[in-house]
């Protein structure tokens, strides 16, 4: 067994690590957003997530993502004005 990876293998591993890293970043963001929306929407956890709570969670996640896009766009517009 050769301990050193070939160039092709090194490239493959590099791509693999980049993908895994990206996945981890997305998981972190989902985890953080879950906490934010759980705090806003599920004040008293019951036997199931009722429809108003589920709605609130879906809205919370959607509006957070909208806000994120809005802020990115606004920041870009501000920088163009300068």
């Amino acid at each position: 067994m050769d301990a050193e990876p070939s160039d092709a293998q090194a490239r493959e591993l590099q791509t693999f690590m980049e993908t895994e890293n990206q996945k981890a970043i997305i998981q972190q963001a989902i985890s953080k957003l879950t906490e934010t929306c759980f705090d806003k929407c599920v004040t008293k956890p019951g036997n199931k997530l009722d429809s108003s709570e589920a709605n609130c969670i879906a809205n919370c996640a959607g509006r957070y993502l909208d806000s994120s896009v809005f802020i990115v766009n606004r920041m870009m517009a501000k920088r163009q004005q300068q």
């Binding site: 997305i26 599920v42 997530l49 996640a61």
Partner: peptide
Amino acid sequence: CMDRYLDSMTLVSQAW
């Protein structure tokens, strides 16, 4: 609390 948290995580993942 734990079960509803996990439910919430599923919904957030779906929205994402």
